[in-house]
Design a protein around this nucleic acid. Sequence first.
DNA 1: ACTATTTCCTGGATGC
DNA 2: TGCATCCAGGAAATAG
Length: 291
Amino acid sequence: MPELPEVETIARGLNSRVAGDVIESVWLGTKPEPLKSPAADIVTALESKRISEVRRVGKHIVFDLENGGRASSTKKSRVEHKGARARTPAPTSDKAQWIVHLGMTGRMLVCPPGEKIEKHTHAVAKLSSGRELRFVDPRRFGRLSVSHRFEAPGSEPLKVELAGFVNLFHGRKTPIKSALLNQKLLSGVGNIYADESLFRARVRPRRRAASLTRDDLSRLYRAVREVLEEAIALGGSSISDYVDSDGEEGFFQLQHRVYGREGEPCLVCRTPVKRVVIAGRSAHYCPKCQK
DNA sequence: ACTATTTCCTGGATGC
DNA sequence: TGCATCCAGGAAATAG
């Protein structure tokens, strides 16, 4: 359920709280681990690393790491001075990154020393400030991994230009709703924001992506950006107990026009909002406003 | 190369 | 109150 606006909010919160802190040690839960990288790789990539920045990429939280926790700093500065313009890509590209996907129910908590360990805690990173970063995820759809140059699988909805956006759907027979959810096309849009965007663009979710006119697509492009930007400004949507890294709720759920409003009157024309299932996902729309 | 369907997982809601 | 059943859904795996 955390989608782009929620992950953006969480990443910003984490960045303001733990950037500059150093990961001293890492504990990973056993049993079925929610890991995409081998546990040993994660531990070595994180331990003794300084968190330089926390940011969002698609629906992923990226912790950019750098050496600097221990005695490795002298070696690092030498490399940077000498090899900087030699022809190696860029010093940033080979720095480790900790990639966190929250799935449906994942949370990344910053805990003060001594806080009791919550049920479903799958990873704990002890920081030199004494605090702990904890990954808690009851439903286990979240994933942890390490990378060096992580990229979103598709386009960033807030960065892609109209022409690129239009191109994504060219020739696609899948319903536009499914296409919006496909992370390889657009990275970051999930069920709530897909439905809200389609409503604002007045496009039915079941329409084949390829059938959308230039005009449909340009309204959809604007709608996606508008919805995501408004949601970020309101701290995301708090449904089923979502809170950000500071425990604050978002308020975009109050702006939902169709999502979760099955049977309630459309805010534009009073026609009851319909809910259908498309590719196994619920889709909410106004049968009168959306064509 | 695509598209559609199934699977994973648990808490909360629903029904008897 | 208890117990079974269903549902939510992101993304990977599987099937067509």
